[in-house]
């Protein structure tokens, strides 16, 4: 059991997931502070998606403990689900619904009272600059806009934590910058951001990052500290030095 601590939104202790004889996630332990932007890095197959799925309550841990937003993973998944937002690498809004219909649907899913829905949607449209796109079908939006919309929808219920699984995959650099501005806005509002990414320049935008290698967390620290420690000019070099030792991938 982990003692709940108000300073942390995520606390993980020896979290493990095995599929048969394969250990996808091998006794990882870490904490994420409240309001922090936490980068969760690792090569493909390092186990980051599996770890994230456990934290979101989508997959049961084989052993170990984790507290997410104060709720125990595997025991109180309902509590977790109410307090987190989630956006996946696969674009996940309904393409054949209009912008406002998608917003309305997710507002309904998260049980936002009918009276507040309209106001929330208007606020969201404004912060995205989407006022003219309210009746546009999502399928006709450019990819970068879709990602922004998906992010806004994932925090429509003001969650304590938002999990972003490679949110900027396939998006051009300019759109990625805009996307990160939205992430900063959310963090300013006190939402903890837990993000996985393949882009090492994005890793530098995070407050702290962890790098997973072969199911274990190899390092966890501020980007600047890691760069100094591993004598890298940028995160890319740090990542390469660490991932070189990987057995899997």
């Amino acid at each position: 059991m982990i003692q709940p601590n108000d300073n942390y939104s995520i606390m993980v202790e020896d979290l493990t997931k095995r599929f048969g004889s394969f250990t996808a996630v091998d006794h990882i332990s870490f904490e994420v502070k409240k309001g922090e932007i936490f980068g969760f890095l690792g090569a493909n197959g390092a186990g980051k998606t599996t770890a994230m799925k456990m934290l979101c309550g989508l997959s049961k841990p084989t052993s170990g403990n984790a507290l997410v937003a104060g709720f125990e993973v595997g025991k109180d998944n309902e509590g977790i689900k109410k307090n987190i937002g989630y956006m996946s690498q696969r674009f996940s809004l309904y393409e054949e619904l209009k912008v406002w219909e998608n917003m309305r649907l997710y507002a309904g899913i998260y049980g936002i009272p009918e009276k507040q829905i309209k106001e929330r949607i208007e606020l969201m449209l404004e912060s995205l600059g989407f006022q003219n796109e309210i009746n546009t079908f999502v399928k006709s939006l450019p990819v970068g806009w879709k990602q922004k919309l998906a992010f806004a929808v994932s925090i429509i219920h003001n969650p304590k934590i938002v999990f972003l699984d490679e949110p900027t995959g396939g998006v051009d650099p300019a759109s990625r910058r805009q996307f990160w501005e939205l992430i900063y806005q959310a963090a300013d509002k006190g939402i903890t951001v837990f993000v996985t990414t393949h882009y090492m320049d994005e890793a530098e935008y995070c407050n702290r990052i962890s790098i997973m290698v072969d199911g274990k967390i190899a390092v966890i620290d501020k980007p600047q500290t890691l760069k100094m420690q591993y004598h890298g000019r940028n995160m890319d070099e740090v990542f390469r030095k660490l991932a070189r030792n990987a057995v899997r991938s």
């Binding site: 309550g57 989508l58 689900k81 989630y86 696969r90 809004l93 899913i109 998260y110 049980g111």
Partner: peptide, 13 residues
């Protein structure tokens, strides 16, 4: 197929 199921499963519904 479209990945929306994942989002729904993460939601409290």
């Amino acid at each position: 197929e479209f990945g929306t199921m994942e989002i729904l499963l993460v939601s409290p519904v």
